[in-house]
């Protein structure tokens, strides 16, 4: 690091090209862009960050009324079950929708010499993650008041969040690149997410699904992620490590593909915008 403590501003030019400087720079840039997004999202609204909680609570209410009182699904701890589902799913859907516009809505940044484009999709994923993190304590409170137990297994939660992040990054890079070439990617994505919402056990249980279809759910990464979240938070158990390991492998592969596609496409971003 620079030892510029004495002088007011002597950032040695050598230091600025050092890997450490670069690392600090990328971290600062990432944080700054995330904070900017967050401010724009909440600063001028009356409830501000509370929207991160109000929104999923409203969804929760609808599901509880419909599926506990109108159509009865016999799922224990239904409110908790749905709330965790909604939070996790909302992160995925918000993140991907924003990632799709990560390049196309940041023309001015892309035209900046030396701007690291690969940060932009990550920023899109991180902002809605914040919503999840804000609402998680509420979820934990639900568990406590519902008579559940807070166990040490909760410590496994960051691991699952990290895994979902990796999974979303791969997809995020793909949709961000695709959107530059085909502007209807985001519409397509909306349809895909809508279908995905119903094909993922967000508000129902896989046990409600006819046995012959159940195997399809094994192919749905979001179903595995949700299951892992729920075992940790609701059942207070360790998640299924086999399914998570497979998911980690798939996500890593997806990430690698996404990055490569993005790298290749990024040379044309300026021309296409």
């Amino acid at each position: 690091m620079s030892n510029a403590r004495g002088g007011p501003r002597i950032p040695a030019p050598v230091a600025q090209t050092s890997p450490l400087w670069r690392w600090i720079y990328l971290r600062d840039l990432l944080l700054e862009l995330i904070v900017r997004d967050m401010k724009l999202r909440y600063e001028r609204s009356l409830l501000g960050v509370l929207w991160a909680i109000v929104n999923p609570l409203a969804q929760l209410m609808v599901f509880v009324i419909v599926f506990k009182h109108v159509i009865r699904l016999e799922i224990p701890n239904y409110a908790l079950y749905v709330f965790s589902g909604v939070l996790v799913w909302n992160w995925t859907s918000e993140a991907l929708l924003q990632a799709a516009n990560a390049i196309t809505s940041n023309r001015d940044l892309i035209r900046q010499p030396g701007f690291p484009l690969a940060l932009l999709p990550i920023v899109s994923l991180a902002t809605p993650l914040f919503d999840l993190l804000v609402a998680l304590p509420i979820l934990v409170l639900f568990v406590v008041f519902g008579g559940g137990e807070i166990t040490l297994h909760l410590l496994a939660l960051p691991l699952v969040i990290g895994l979902q992040f990796l999974f979303l990054q791969g997809l995020g890079y793909l949709v961000a690149s695709a959107q530059v070439l085909f502007r209807d990617t985001s519409h397509l994505l909306r349809v895909g997410l809508m279908l995905g919402f119903y094909l993922t056990p967000v508000f129902y249980d896989v046990q409600n699904v006819p046995a012959s279809f159940r195997v399809l759910y094994l192919l749905n990464p979001m179903a595995h992620l949700l299951k892992a979240y729920r075992s940790i938070i609701i059942q207070g158990e360790l998640p299924d490590l086999v399914s998570l390991s497979v998911l980690a492998l798939v996500s890593a592969l997806l990430f690698w593909i996404g990055r490569r596609v993005f790298e290749r496409a990024s040379h044309h971003f300026v021309e296409e915008l």
Binding site: T17, R36, L40, D108, P113
Partner: peptide, 15 residues
């Protein structure tokens, strides 16, 4: 290090 006076105010937001 390269700096551009190309598009001034990249990342500016009115709010």
């Amino acid at each position: 290090r390269t700096t551009g006076l190309l598009d001034l105010g990249a990342g500016f937001h009115p709010d």
